[in-house]
């Protein structure tokens, strides 16, 4: 990859990490709150459906996780296996697209 693309990838990794850190905390606190409060699936859905806030929050979560996860996986595979280069880059992009598709589908069902 060119120096320019690689720098962009590095920036994307940094920024997605900064976005993910608070979102993971919000997510965990929400999960604990929902379970402790004994909310049923139907009750949770009634709160999230039509909510721009939850839709936006989890939409952003999906986006950041897909970017961060695919870049990270590409790095780990590149370092730990002989697989490098263009085919690995393409696989990382495909992985990111797949994560986004699944993630957005879930967010769509939630809101």
């Amino acid at each position: 990859m060119s120096a320019k693309t690689e720098t962009l990838v590095w920036l994307a990794q940094r920024i997605s990490a900064m976005v993910l850190a608070p979102l993971v905390l919000v997510h965990i606190v929400t999960v604990i709150y929902a379970i402790r409060g004994g909310l049923s699936a139907a009750e949770i859905l009634s709160r999230t459906q039509g909510s721009l806030f939850w839709g936006g929050l989890y939409g952003l979560f999906v986006l950041a996780a897909a970017i961060h996860g695919s870049i990270g996986a590409r790095t780990v595979i590149g370092e730990m296996t002989p697989w490098r280069g263009r085919s690995l880059d393409a696989a990382a992009v495909a992985f990111a697209v797949g994560l986004m598709a699944m993630g957005f589908r879930a967010v769509g069902a939630l809101t």
Partner: peptide, 8 residues
Amino acid sequence: VAGDAGCH
């Protein structure tokens, strides 16, 4: 030095 063989 930019890139995946360099500082990044």
